[in-house]
Design a protein around this nucleic acid. Structure first.
Lengths: 196, 196
DNA sequence: GTCTATAACGAGATAGAC
DNA sequence: GTCTATCTCGTTATAGAC
């Protein structure tokens, strides 16, 4: 047969990215190796080097795919046409989905590893946060305009607090293995921009 | 001469802990080696193994010392006798001090590395967060009682949000190299338990 | 208490066969 | 596109001299 049309993880590069993504989200960028990915995939590390020249390139590809997927999810929320408070809930839901899979946000994890990352990865991590904050700030402005949200200071500042707050809630919830803990914190964070 | 009475970092074990602590806070537990500490200290790795049997023991000692120091700082804030809102500001100030030194909170960093840590370290990380939350919850209760703080839900839930929020604000602020960003987020977090 | 020496292993990477 | 084989280096750890 030729090759699957849309089966997502049938090709090797995607399978590598899937495995490496999970490993980074669970163990950190310095906590996994080419060998880990190769053995889980049932190939040798040489095969990995064929698809991704080195760990830096693999890491950069991971962030690019993750950011694209996250961007798609944001666009989908936007297209939903719900009111701003509901959009914020949906946004927090994206984080909850990741945490429910026992993972940390990829870029939150890489933020911890930041000082050890190759340049290309560093810039991509910062861009991820920038994009999230721009999207959130827009939703917050919408809410302020239509009266469904109420907060002091700039929308950007509020957006930065929400991104940091959600990342931190994930970070701390994981050692406790407690998604409830995340949800409670997330609701409190969102409530802080919802009440007059 | 005999040996310094209180010069803090004159003895080798303390010097090892100081260097290792900074390395973990900057690079993560899987981002530094005995070799890094040894070369910075000007000794061999064999000398390190004399003082700390292995990386797991060194890591456990790091958390124990860090938690003790943090506990002392909390007791000092408590002893200050300020009102609850001022105590919360002082608490956030502890995080700012760490971040201003270009470091992540030791236990926040280890929370990211959690899945790769030896058991003894895992338990100590969770205990650190527990102690912080108990202390914060007490301050929040005080504030609620004397009318200087106002929040919905339990004090423990609010405390968990604050700890997670501050850790996340640090986590994200570091890639930006922006302490202002942390401070703005921290003030917003504290404001969410301060206004009626 | 620190050193030299060395063991034992794992990690990232490459060359060249198939 | 994947393999075998190999290289080089870093990391943790130990034995024994000083």
């Amino acid at each position: 047969m030729a090759r699957r049309t849309r089966g997502a993880e049938t090709d090797t590069p995607s399978a590598i990215l899937d495995l490496a993504e999970r490993l980074v989200q669970v163990r950190g960028f310095n906590g996994f190796s080419y060998g880990d990915v190769a053995s889980e995939l049932g190939v040798t590390t040489a095969a990995l080097h064929y698809h991704f020249a080195g760990k830096a390139e693999l890491g950069a590809a991971l962030i690019a795919r993750y950011a694209a997927r996250f961007g798609d999810a944001l666009a989908e929320i936007e297209a939903g046409g719900d009111d701003p408070p509901t959009k914020l809930e949906a946004y927090a839901g994206l984080y909850l989905d990741v945490l429910s899979d026992q993972r940390m946000c990829l870029c939150g994890m890489l933020a911890a590893d930041y000082q050890t990352l190759p340049k290309q990865m560093r810039d991509a991590v910062v861009s991820f946060f920038d994009e999230n904050e721009v999207w959130l700030a827009r939703v917050l402005e919408q809410g302020k305009a239509d009266g469904t949200l109420h907060f002091t200071g700039s929308a950007t500042e509020a957006a930065q607090m929400i991104v940091g707050g959600l990342e931190g809630a994930m970070l701390v919830a994981r050692p406790y293995g407690d998604t409830e803990r995340f949800q409670t914190a997330a609701h409190r964070l969102l409530a802080s921009v919802a009440h007059p």
